[in-house]
Design a protein around this nucleic acid. Structure first.
Length: 581
RNA sequence: GCACCCAUAGCUCAGCUGGAUAGAGCGCUGCCCUCCGAAGGCAGAGGCCUCAGGUUCGAAUCCUGAUGGGUGCGCCA
């Protein structure tokens, strides 16, 4: 159930009646009409802009519409009052039973409360991480992984049929570099002294791979030219790297549905097929690009290349799909990959890239637009940089200095739950500060702690109730007399809980999972606020001695909050805490 | 040179398909514990929403331009 949608329907019905009665003209566009929580709770429980939105098209004064609408609305038993305010807002007050019913709905539906129908079963493919299989994941990948995973879960919760996908860049030159680097480690495993020239990967993580290669092939590749070992070592090494990456992802709790290999596109005619499709649309041609302005094009020489006319689909310049030496550019397999996604019948595609790939957004969108005939939207979300701090001091990340911070470093130090939550406390397109010390602080300043603490407090209440002999499962709590929850502070918490379905819809529509994190912080704030009121007002405490009926109702409320927190944390991929330590 | 992202309180940031007096945390000021719910609570001060135009009944939100910061820009992925 979504209370805001329900009340909006009531408003629309009333408007229909007014049209039928001739008060309002017919044929009005009702799309802009909203039912939303008012900024100031003193204004009531819900506000609608209907009168203001309709005033102009209906050629009437907002107040006249508002007055007529108000009279109709109060016919509904759920709406106790409707007041015209400000420039023409209609502030509604709802019967307490409406809010009390929220707790009942949450207890009945459990963590499915708020599950939406926005997606309507449409199939969406969310591609994220997609790091090159040349080493362990670092902090930047971590943000992309957390963001993509939370977005996928959010869309699932909003009613989409979600596929989580990882594109393995195992077809380009960088995996040859990887193979050569592993070969050096292989020689090293055989006792040889080796140096790592520029353009190879010197990381320690390849030592074990070199040894594993030795264990597999013995001395078969010693003193042999590349032509003897390159392909085999490349496969061996990329498999090893993907195992490493999969393990990294697992430590964060990320599990992909599909790992899609770039290599599988080569030599199978699939790149050719995708480009043939574009060619058939007249979007492939031979031409020479202008040199980029600004940077000195010292080594620039005009060359004729095979180009994709991406400017036809909103890009700034056309993009090469074939190098002057006749090989594919990286863009060609990317086109083929997205062609494949379109062919697989997804209704919507989402790519999550790091900010350094911002330059590819337009061309990828152009490609998908062209390939799908504009039918399949591609949304590309960029995750901005993560700046690391330790004790408030910037923490520089450098491969050379050996302070290369990996996903594993972060997860080992602060745990997957904290990592995930903190990574989602910013919009994806803003930079994020990540302080190893602050994220572990236990204070209101730390949203992870604050939200977890709220959930743990509810668990604590339930434990204490159990000790007092009140064993209460959700089904039993649903039988509680919720009309006892009549205090303004209790209604305030119910009101916040009631916003959850609406929040899910907004977050899913905008592809912004960080909204869930902020909502949970607010919800936790309401809960802690109620808890604290219990210090001064004993009747607000959750456990009421010698009054099992009231206790039952209050626990039902607390449990409802905990269920929504658990559902929200579930979307973020964070485990709700039963107790704080 | 061009493209994309960012700019909101002293600091770090929220702010819904445009809505009412722009919010939170931290910091600051002042109150509140002899135990039982203070790893806290209550209250207050603090704003030209970077700037200049425009659209609108109404703009932090949309459009145009400027300024400052970030990222990227053929034959790497």
């Amino acid at each position: 159930m979504n209370l805001f949608a329900d009340i909006r329907d009531v408003i629309l019905n009333c408007l229909d009646q007014l049209v039928a009665e001739g008060v309002l003209p017919g044929g009005l566009n009702t799309d802009p009409i909203t039912a939303e929580p008012p900024r100031d709770p003193a204004h009531g429980d819900m506000a609608t802009n209907a009168a203001m939105v309709l005033a102009k098209p209906a050629a009437m004064k907002p107040r006249d519409i508002a007055d007529a609408l108000a009279a109709k609305l109060t016919d509904d038993p759920r709406i106790t009052s409707a007041e015209v305010a400000g420039p023409g807002f209609l502030n509604l007050r709802l019967a307490p039973s409406v809010w009390q019913g929220i707790a009942g709905a949450v207890l009945a539906e459990g963590t499915d409360f708020g599950r939406g129908s926005l997606g309507a079963g449409r199939r969406v493919n969310v591609e994220y991480v997609s790091a090159n299989p040349t080493g362990p994941l670092h902090v930047g990948h971590t943000r992309g992984a957390v963001f993509g995973d939370a977005l996928a879960s959010l869309l699932d919760f909003a009613g989409f049929d979600v596929t989580r996908e990882y594109y393995i860049n195992d077809g380009g030159a960088q995996v040859d570099v990887l193979a050569r680097s592993v070969y050096l480690r292989y020689l090293e495993a055989h006792g040889q002294e080796v140096a790592f020239p520029d353009g190879t990967y010197p990381g320690d993580y390849l030592i074990a791979v070199g040894e594993a290669l030795k264990a597999k092939v013995g001395d078969a590749y010693l003193d042999k030219g590349e032509q003897f070992w390159l392909e085999d070592v490349r496969n061996f090494a990329t498999d090893a790297m993907m195992d490493l990456i999969r393990a990294d992802l697992k430590s964060l709790g990320v599990e992909m549905d599909v790992f899609y290999s770039e290599k599988s596109l080569y030599g199978t005619g699939r790149i050719e097929a995708a480009l043939e499709d574009l060619k058939g649309k007249g979007l492939i041609y031979e031409g020479v690009l202008e040199p980029p302005k600004g940077k000195k094009p010292e080594d620039w020489e005009p060359r004729e290349q095979t180009l994709f006319r991406s400017t036809e689909h909103g890009d700034d310049v056309d993009r090469p799909v074939m190098k002057s030496d006749g090989g594919w550019t990286y863009f060609a397999p990317d086109i083929a990959y997205h062609y494949d996604k379109v062919q697989r019948g997804f209704d919507l595609l989402i790519d999550v890239f790091g900010a350094d790939h911002g330059g590819y957004v337009k061309r990828m969108k152009a490609a998908v637009s062209a390939l799908s005939g504009g039918k399949v939207p591609l949304d590309i979300k960029l995750t901005q940089l993560v700046k690391l701090f330790k004790n408030g001091e910037p923490f520089k990340m450098s491969k050379r200095a050996g302070t290369f911070v990996t996903l594993r470093d972060v997860v080992d130090q602060v745990g997957p739950d904290v990592t995930r939550f903190v990574m989602l406390t910013r919009k994806n397109d803003a930079m994020l500060d990540f302080d190893f010390d602050k994220v572990l602080e236990q204070s209101r300043e730390n949203p992870v702690f604050y939200v977890q603490y709220a959930h743990a407090r509810v668990s604590s209440v339930l434990r204490k109730a159990a000790e007092a002999g009140m064993s209460l499962d959700d089904a039993a709590l649903a039988q509680a007399d919720l009309t006892l929850l009549d205090h303004e502070a209790e209604i305030a918490l119910l009101r916040k809980i009631g916003e959850w379905p609406r929040l899910v819809e907004i977050a899913a529509r905008t592809n912004e999972p960080h909204r869930v994190a902020f909502y949970l912080y607010e919800l936790a704030g309401e809960f802690h606020g109620l808890w604290n009121r219990g210090n001064e007002v004993p009747s607000l405490r959750f456990l009421q001695e010698d009054n099992p009926k009231a206790t039952m109702a209050k626990i039902a409320l607390a449990r409802s909050a905990a269920i929504v927190i658990a559902a929200g944390l579930g979307i973020l991929g964070v485990t709700p805490a039963q107790e704080m330590r």
